[in-house]
């Protein structure tokens, strides 16, 4: 285990931001801490880094208790949400800063910085200033800077939060690929469940300072441990008093087995269609259909249909 957190607690004044968190993170894994804003996930990351001091509990990295160790002795790589570039230094100077602190020789620094810029594809921008880079480039520079010191753990705080939608998607797959090549234990914090599902091989879901569930992302999606996790990972609708994923419901003709319902609204999003229904028990629910399914059914408002849970459903409580 690369990182062990034991009963970690942190309060700001009377507010418990991180409440008795105990978990472990596998060596070489890419773990994502997912939670809504204010869930304490960034604070937890900063506690692991040593940027905040914890009130009680212990933090161990690679079997060594680091609870009372200063940030700068922990040898961790930290990428800040807004990248925290050193504005008055060039890209190369930024990346080499940690090595200079470690009193490496000029030649060693230059060589290592060259390698890293190669990896993050910024070799041609070595002498630019952060202000001359795009958001994605700044992000990659921050990553190179954090990696330069060969950290035991790489910590990423909302790494793609400030980027355009398209760049985010690009960087996500780049990060996966990158982690594959350099398998340093990585913890990333995000509030974006799609991002978390795509990137993580371990998922930690947090709310109100406490861990809600940990494990494999697909497993968590399929069997969330509570309603919060279920609702946070994807849309849910209420069918027969039970929360269900709207894509796990099926619409069929009025005579098919299932609950009778009337179509009350149809919204076409292009890649999917949302159909709102009113059931015979006078409850409402909605169903997510693929465009093709919707075309086959050719529904219109007022149609009588039946709705049922798809066979082999991932029904969850």
């Amino acid at each position: 285990m690369a990182i062990l957190l034991n009963r970690v607690t942190k309060s700001y004044g009377s507010r418990r931001v991180v409440d008795d968190v105990t978990t472990s993170i596998d060596d070489g894994s890419l773990t994502v801490i997912l939670g809504p804003s204010g869930s304490g996930k960034s604070t937890l990351l900063r506690l692991i880094a040593g940027l905040e001091t914890l009130d009680s509990g212990t933090v161990a990295i690679d079997g060594q208790d680091v609870t009372f160790q200063d940030v700068r002795d922990r040898n961790i790589g930290f990428c800040f949400q807004h990248y925290a570039p050193f504005r008055h230094m060039t890209v190369a100077k930024n990346v080499g800063f940690g090595l200079k602190v470690r009193k490496q020789s000029r030649a060693d620094i230059d060589r290592r910085v060259g390698e890293l810029l190669e990896i993050v594809r910024l070799s041609d921008k070595a002498n630019r200033y952060p202000s001359q880079l795009s958001g994605g480039e700044r992000q990659r520079m921050a990553l190179a800077r954090a990696l330069a010191i060969e950290p035991r753990v790489l910590l990423l705080d909302e790494p793609f939060g400030a980027l355009d939608a398209q760049v985010r998607v690009e960087l996500r797959s780049w990060l996966r690929d990158f982690h594959h090549r350099i398998p340093v234990t990585t913890i990333m914090v995000t509030h974006d469940q799609q991002e978390a599902m795509e990137v993580a091989d371990q998922l930690i879901i947090m709310a109100e300072g406490a861990i809600q569930q940990t494990g494999d992302p697909r497993h968590i999606y399929a069997s969330p441990s509570n309603e919060f996790v279920q609702g946070f990972l994807g849309p849910i609708t209420n069918f027969g008093g039970v929360p269900v994923r709207p894509h796990d419901l099926e619409i069929r003709g009025a005579n098919a087995p299932g609950e009778h319902a009337v179509v009350t609204a149809i919204q076409n999003f292009g890649f999917e269609v949302r159909v709102d229904l009113r059931t015979e028990h006078d409850t409402s629910c909605w169903v997510q259909l693929s465009t093709r399914e919707a075309e086959t059914l050719s529904l219109s408002v007022g149609d009588a249909v039946t709705v049922s849970v798809r066979h082999e459903p991932a029904l969850m409580i």
């Binding site: 925290a84 800063f97 940690g98 470690r102």
Partner: peptide, 25 residues
């Protein structure tokens, strides 16, 4: 405090952080 914290995670002590990071800002 971002830049200063970044410097700390990279191992920089208070004096170095002040001289190389805070003062230029």
């Amino acid at each position: 405090t971002d830049q200063e914290e970044a410097a700390r995670t990279l191992g920089s002590g208070p004096l170095r952080t002040f001289w190389y990071i805070t003062l230029p800002v």
